[in-house]
Design a protein around this nucleic acid. Structure first.
Lengths: 143, 143
DNA sequence: GTGCTTGCAAATTCTTTGCAACTTT
DNA sequence: AAAGTTGCAAAGAATTTGCAAGCAC
C-alpha cells in the first residue's frame, strides 16, 4: 500500500507521523483521481472531524516537496493533487469522472529534445497530459 | 501584425473596439512570453493610465472565448496568457526569461491515441509543454 | 522535555460581480 | 439612441501567515 510507504518516508525524513497527516496521506494515496485541496479537506474531515484546511495545505506542500504527489491540470485549474508515479510517467485523465492513469512516455523524450534543439532550447522538463473519456464514461456509466 | 487581425475579429463579432481593449490586445499580441493578468495590467496602465485590472480580466476572457489566446502553465501557475498559434501547436517555454515558441506536434497525435486506447480511453484533448532554457539564457545573457 | 504540528483567526492575494457613467456604432 | 464597455468599490474565493496549545518522539 502506498500509504505505508509514504508514512515510512515521512518518518525517515524526520517528520512526525500524526493522525491528521495519516488521514490526508491515505486519502491522496488511494484516490483514483486528482483532488483539490478543498476536496481532500472534505474527505479528511469526514473521516476525522476537526482536521483543518490549513493542515491539508501544509501536508500537500510537504508531500510535494518530497515528490510524492504532483499538481495536475484538471477542470480548469492546475492545483489538483495526484499521487506521483515511480519513474517517468505521464497522465491520462478522464474529463468526466476524473479517473487518472499513468503511462510510460519514454519514446517521446528524444523527440522533445530534437524539437527543442531546432529552436535553440535545452529542455529541462515537460508537461504532458492527455484528456478524454475513460471506458466507463464512454459507455455512459458515470452519467 | 496580429493586433490588427484581432481588432478585425473583435469588430466582426460585434464587439466594440475601444481604447483600453486595443492597448491590452496589443500587449498580448506582441509579447514573446506568457503574461499574468497583473503583468498585462501593469504594462497596459503604463501605456494608458487609468485602465483597470477588471478590464484586463474581461478582455482576456473575451480573447480566450474567441480562441485568440490560451492559458499556459508557467512559473507555478496556469493562468499566464499567451497568444494562440494557428493550427495545432505546442509550446516550448524558457523557464528563466519566459520566452516562448510554438512548434508543430502532429507526429505525436497518433501515438497519443494508441496509448489511450490501451487504457480504454478516448482522447479529446491534450496538454503538452516543454520547458527549458532558450539559447540566450543558456549563454547567460539574461542573468 | 523538545521541537515539530495543529487549528483558529486574521491577513493576503487573486478574481468576480453590481452598477452608474461613458463610449462606440 | 441603443447597446456594449469601463472603472470603481465591494464581494467572494483561495491560499498563506502568526501564534498559542497540543502531540510525537
Amino acid at each position: 500500500m502506498i500509504t505505508q510507504q509514504w508514512v515510512q518516508s515521512l518518518s525517515n525524513n524526520g517528520c512526525r507521523v500524526t493522525k491528521p497527516r495519516c488521514v490526508i496521506l491515505d486519502i491522496i494515496a488511494r484516490s483514483e483521481r486528482p483532488l483539490t485541496p478543498q476536496e481532500i479537506h472534505a474527505l479528511a474531515a469526514a473521516k476525522s472531524p476537526g482536521i483543518g484546511l490549513v493542515t491539508v495545505y501544509r501536508t500537500i506542500d510537504k508531500l510535494e516537496e518530497m515528490e510524492m504527489v504532483e499538481r495536475v491540470h484538471h477542470t480548469g485549474q492546475c492545483q489538483t493533487i495526484f499521487r506521483r508515479a515511480v519513474g517517468h510517467k505521464h497522465l491520462l485523465i478522464c474529463t468526466q469522472c476524473g479517473r487518472s492513469v499513468h503511462f510510460e512516455g519514454l519514446e517521446f523524450e528524444k523527440e522533445f529534445q530534437l524539437i527543442a534543439q531546432k529552436h535553440g532550447f535545452c529542455i529541462t522538463s515537460h508537461w504532458l497530459q492527455l484528456s478524454g473519456l475513460c471506458a466507463d464514461c464512454q459507455k455512459g456509466k458515470n452519467t
